[in-house]
Measured scan of single mutants.
Amino acid sequence: DFYRCHTCNTTDRNAICVNCIKKCHQGHDVEFIRHDRFFCDCGAGT
């Protein structure tokens, strides 16, 4: 499962994972996106 962060203006080409929300995007306006054509390269392994 992935998310888009409207606060940081993520686009259709990138998304964030749950670990990104916990570490970098906590309290931001995020939108849940189940699956799409992207991956998270944060290195958290999710």
Rank of each mutant, 00 (worst) to 15 (best):
Gly27Trp: 02
Gly27Pro: 02
Arg37Pro: 11
Glu31Ala: 08
Asp41Phe: 06
Val18Pro: 11
Ala15Met: 14
His25Tyr: 00
Asn14Arg: 09
Asp36Pro: 06
Cys40Pro: 04
Cys20Trp: 00
Thr7Ile: 01
Thr10Tyr: 10
Asp1Trp: 02
Tyr3Cys: 06
Thr10Asn: 12
Arg4Gln: 06
Ile21Leu: 09
Asn14Asp: 13
Gly27Phe: 04
Phe32Lys: 15
Cys40Ile: 00
His25Asn: 00
Arg37Asp: 11
His25Gly: 02
Phe2Ile: 15
Ile33His: 05
Thr10Ile: 08
Asn14Tyr: 05
Ile21Thr: 05
Ile21Arg: 05
Thr7Gln: 06
Asp36Cys: 10
Phe2Asn: 06
Cys20His: 01
His28Glu: 04
Ala15Gln: 10
Cys8His: 00
Cys24His: 11
Arg13Met: 14
Ile21Pro: 02
Tyr3Glu: 04
His35Ser: 13
Asp41Cys: 14
Cys5Asp: 03
Lys22Ala: 13
Cys20Arg: 02
Thr7Val: 01
Asn14Ile: 03
Val18Cys: 09
Gln26Cys: 05
His35Thr: 10
Ala44Gln: 10
Val30Gly: 02
Asp41Glu: 08
Lys22Glu: 04
Cys24Thr: 15
Gly45Glu: 03
Asn14Cys: 11
Cys42Tyr: 00
Phe39Tyr: 08
Asn14His: 07
Gly45Gln: 07
Phe39Asn: 14
Tyr3Leu: 06
Arg4Ile: 07
Asn9Lys: 13
His28Thr: 06
Arg13Cys: 14
Phe2Ala: 07
Arg13Gly: 14
Asp36Met: 08
Ala15Val: 09
Phe38Val: 13
Asn9Glu: 11
Lys23Met: 03
Phe38Gly: 11
Thr11Gly: 14
Val18Ile: 12
Cys20Ile: 00
Phe38Trp: 13
Lys22Gly: 09
Cys20Asn: 02
Ala15Ser: 11
Asn9Cys: 10
Cys42Glu: 03
His25Val: 01
Asp41Pro: 14
Ala44Arg: 13
Thr11Arg: 09
Asn14Met: 06
Thr7Phe: 03
Asp1Val: 09
Ile16Met: 06
Arg37Met: 12
Tyr3Gly: 10
Phe2Gln: 07
Ala15Pro: 10
Val30Gln: 02
Gly27Ala: 06
Gly45Trp: 05
Phe2Gly: 05
Cys40Gly: 02
Gln26Ile: 08
Asp1Tyr: 10
Cys24Leu: 14
Asp12Thr: 11
Asn19Tyr: 02
Glu31Tyr: 03
Thr11Cys: 14
Asp29Cys: 05
Ala15Tyr: 09
Phe32Leu: 15
Val18Trp: 13
Phe32Ile: 15
Ile21Glu: 03
Gly45Ala: 10
Cys40Met: 03
Phe32Glu: 11
Cys17His: 00
Cys42Leu: 03
His35Pro: 11
Arg4Asn: 07
His6Pro: 04
Gln26Met: 10
Arg13Thr: 11
Lys22His: 08
Gly45Tyr: 05
Cys20Val: 00
Val30Ile: 12
Arg4Cys: 13
Val30Met: 04
Thr11Met: 04
His28Met: 00
His28Trp: 00
Asn9Val: 12
Arg4Met: 12
Arg4Asp: 03
Gly27Asn: 15
Thr11Lys: 10
Asp1Gln: 05
Phe32Gln: 10
His6Ala: 11
Phe39Gly: 14
Cys8Phe: 00
Cys24Ala: 12
Gly45Ile: 04
Arg37Thr: 10
Asp29Tyr: 03
Asn19His: 06
Glu31Gly: 05
Cys8Gln: 01
Cys20Lys: 05
Asp12His: 06
Ala44Trp: 14
His25Ser: 02
Asn19Glu: 12
Asp29Phe: 05
Asp29Glu: 13
Asp29Arg: 10
Gly43Leu: 09
Phe32Gly: 14
Glu31Asp: 08
His25Asp: 00
Tyr3Lys: 01
Arg37Ala: 14
Gly45Ser: 12
Asp29Val: 04
Glu31Phe: 01
Phe32Val: 15
Cys24Gln: 13
Ile16His: 06
Asn19Met: 07
Cys40Lys: 05
Arg4Gly: 04
His28Gly: 02
Lys23Gly: 06
Tyr3Thr: 04
Thr46Arg: 15
His6Trp: 08
Cys8Ser: 03
Phe32Asn: 15
Ala15Lys: 05
Tyr3Val: 03
Cys5Phe: 02
Cys20Gln: 05
Ala44Pro: 09
His6Asn: 04
Glu31Cys: 07
Cys20Tyr: 00
Arg34His: 15
Asp41Gln: 09
Phe32Met: 14
Lys22Ser: 14
Val30Leu: 08
Cys5Pro: 02
Val18Lys: 09
Thr11Ser: 14
Gln26Glu: 09
Gly43Pro: 03
Ile16Glu: 03
Ile16Trp: 11
Val30Ala: 04
Glu31Arg: 09
Asp36Val: 13
Cys40Asn: 07
Cys17Phe: 01
Tyr3Asn: 07
His6Cys: 06
Gly43Arg: 07
Asp41Leu: 12
Gly27Ser: 07
Ile21Gln: 03
Cys42Phe: 01
Thr11Gln: 14
His35Phe: 13
